[in-house]
Amino acid sequence: MKRETLLPLTVKELRALAAKKGIPKASSLVKAELIEALASSSKNPAPTAKIIAPTTEAKATIKNSATAKKISATKKSATKNNSSAKTKSKKNAPVSKSTRTRKRISLTSPKRKNVLPTAISPKPLNAILSKFISTSSLRVGAPPTPHNPQAPGANPGLPIPDHYGRDRLVLMVQDPLHIFAYWELQAETVARAINDTHGGDPVLVIHTSGNTETRSVDLRGGNYYLSVSADQDYEAELALRSTNGALHVLVRSNKVRTPAPSISQRIDEQWMGIENTEGSFHELLELAGLPGQVAGANSVSRLRDQRLATWNWQHSGVTSISSAVLSSHNRSSSARLSP
């Protein structure tokens, strides 16, 4: 059982599952521990990349967009991972859904029905090319136009390129369970591959932890969101799959890793101290007027020179020591920080 499938469950549900699986002391475990225990107890190999049907409808992936309401409508700032202090929804319209077609590919969900699209059968070269390439400009995977239409009379901004004349496949992590992929292919690259394979099914090949999955894609699309597993490395290739199953790779992606979705099971500890710099650190604090020291308001230049002369973080190092040392050190030093 995968962690991400367990995450949405309540503690009560998790405890019931744990009890079913005979996990000891399940009633005393907190959620994260329950998830880890259940995930560890599973015999299933970790990130199999089960391919689930792509969908062609646009799906905005922004979660909980309503939390944006606390942010200034006209200003910067992040949508913090918490709720609004004041409801200031007046200036914040709901997040618009994309009107563009985007593909979603799930590599994980075991529950969704596996509905594969009709495979592309071998076709004459011209037909394949016309499928892949806008013949007027020989563009493949051209970038979409900006999602938000301009208000009437608004400055739309200066023109930007449709493409950059290179073969490119880029993976980007959206969150622990989703990766975004975009690509651009040169017409020559596709034509050459089609010649070599005598036509073929365009596929996205995803590699993770020894597993490989392929998915039929539309090369013209260029924007896909993939449902994946947390805490895994991913790489991908765009390829043409010939009728005999051979893959002709068009372009390879960068490598990304999805974040961990829960606390680490590693509990070994290493501790680090600042070696050789502690003295200069205190000197620096004094120079900065910290704590309680008063420096002249016009002494910035002098302080800068002194700081540059005394500060060298590059000399810090790693020290492995026991936590007992840490405790004693902190006890002794805490007195100095008293007001």
């Binding site: 646009a58 799906k59 905005a60 992936t61 922004i62 979660k63 909980n64 967009s65 939390t67 944006a68 992040a78 949508t79 913090k80 991972n81 997040v95 618009s96 859904k97 994309s98 563009r100 985007r102 970038p143 979409p144 136009t145 900006p146 999602h147 938000n148 950059y164 490119r168 880029v170 980007m172 992590v173 959206q174 969150d175 622990p176 989703h178 975004f180 975009y182 651009e184 924007n223 974040p259």
Partner: peptide
Amino acid sequence: DAGYNGVWLNPSNDWIYR
């Protein structure tokens, strides 16, 4: 929001990254 990259990477703005 949600603690990762989704605010800066979603269908409203993914066009900028290429």
